[in-house]
């Protein structure tokens, strides 16, 4: 019983923490962020297993975590509200070359991040060449170039 409850508690706690941490947390990851992620993984492992290193415990934990994930994804499919709660919504950060400062501050994104993505994905050099920049649910920035800036 402990295994299932512990696995569920840690799953939902991690979900909450990473939801609060924001979408950009992994996209802007630095070397230190990766080290932090490794430490979190190690601490989580200890919390999940406790003193029980048996195969049964490991299998039960895996089944619990995968089952919760499947159930949540099914629930998200049925309810947009749950999807919004768990994954958030895409956020428009820039429209017609004009940064939406308040939204960018809230999502901890700056114009350099948008320009970097614009350069990488479309070879654009200036904000004025971007019609729309959207921070997606997975933390990536999608760039839609102005019509005349394409090609």
């Amino acid at each position: 019983m402990d295994t299932i409850l512990r696995g569920s508690a840690i799953y939902f706690f991690l979900l909450l923490i990473f939801r609060l941490a924001g979408k950009r947390s992994l996209e802007k990851a630095t070397t230190f962020d990766f080290v932090l992620l490794l430490i979190i993984a190690e601490v989580t492992q200890q919390g999940l297993l406790g003193e029980d290193f048996s195969v049964t415990n490991a299998l039960l934990l895996i089944v619990t975590l995968v089952l919760i994930d499947i159930l949540l994804s099914l629930w998200k499919q049925r309810s947009h509200r749950i999807e919004w709660l768990i994954d958030g919504v895409p956020v428009v950060l820039l429209r017609d070359g004009v940064p939406l400062e308040e939204r960018m501050r809230r999502e901890r994104v700056d114009t350099e991040d948008i320009l970097a993505e614009a350069r990488r994905s479309h070879g654009l050099e200036r904000l004025s060449q971007i019609r729309c920049a959207v921070l997606e649910r997975n933390g990536c920035i999608s760039i839609i170039p102005e019509a005349h800036a394409k090609a």
Binding site: M1, D2, T3, I4, L5, T56, L60, V63, T64, V66, L67, I70
Partner: peptide
């Protein structure tokens, strides 16, 4: 998978009411 979790909660794999 759900059955395994329910069995685990009931203690059929140790540490529960059963």
């Amino acid at each position: 998978m759900a059955l395994l979790c329910v069995a685990g909660l009931l203690g059929l794999f140790g540490g529960g009411p059963f």
